[in-house]
Simulated scan of single mutants.
Amino acid sequence: MALTREERAQFLAEPHIAALSVDAGPGRAPLTVPIWYQYAPGGDVWILTGTTSRKYELIQAAGRFSLMVDRLDPTIRYVSVEGPVVGTTPGTEAHLRELATRYLPAEKVDGYIEFAKANHGEETVVRMRPKRWVSSDLGSI
């Protein structure tokens, strides 16, 4: 059964690991990778990715991407959202901290930030406006 507009927005706002997919060009399947993201109902989705990464290059070329999040418990549920890139900005430590705080236990955040600053290189925030949604909850199956 499809989720209501409010249910799907709330589900996407929860801290799931998303599968990001973006067109990888002629003769290639889409690039699909796990990623952390941020979303508040009614707003844009944003991700933080390496400025020189293949993923970022493909997103720039395509001008759009999709995210899919799911769970198995207490019911099988998923939300997939696709839309255009509506902006990019340089990533900051504040962006990194926001995502790390969303996904990691509090005692792991500072260590992760130090690791990311030392190993990830320059990052970019990419904002996507959700335009197409697909969702379902299979209930107690």
Rank of each mutant, 00 (worst) to 15 (best):
D73P: 05
T89N: 12
R132T: 12
V85T: 08
G25D: 04
T49V: 13
A24N: 09
P90D: 09
E7R: 07
G25F: 03
F11Y: 13
L48N: 08
F115A: 09
A9H: 02
I76K: 12
G25E: 02
E6W: 02
G42T: 07
S53V: 12
P30M: 04
H16I: 09
S136N: 14
W133Y: 07
G121Y: 01
A40M: 00
K108I: 00
T124C: 07
L138W: 15
V22M: 08
G139F: 05
S135K: 10
P105M: 08
D23S: 09
R28L: 12
G63E: 06
K117N: 11
D73G: 11
T88A: 08
A29M: 09
L67G: 04
G42H: 05
G111A: 05
I141S: 15
A2G: 00
G63Y: 09
T32E: 10
R64K: 10
V109H: 03
E98L: 14
G111R: 01
A118S: 14
I113W: 01
F11G: 07
S21N: 08
Y37H: 08
R129T: 01
A116Q: 07
F11L: 13
A106H: 06
P90M: 06
Y112K: 05
I17K: 07
T124H: 09
A19T: 11
N119G: 00
S21K: 04
R127K: 04
D44L: 03
A40E: 15
G42P: 03
D110K: 04
L96E: 15
E107H: 13
A18R: 02
P90K: 01
S66L: 02
L48W: 03
A100L: 07
G42E: 06
M68S: 14
E107S: 13
A100D: 06
A94V: 14
V86E: 05
G25I: 05
L48S: 08
P105V: 02
G91N: 02
V85R: 11
T75S: 12
I59W: 12
K131I: 01
S135W: 07
L3I: 01
F115L: 14
E6L: 11
T92C: 06
F65L: 08
Y56P: 02
P90L: 10
T101H: 08
W133E: 01
D70Y: 15
G83N: 04
R102Y: 05
L138I: 01
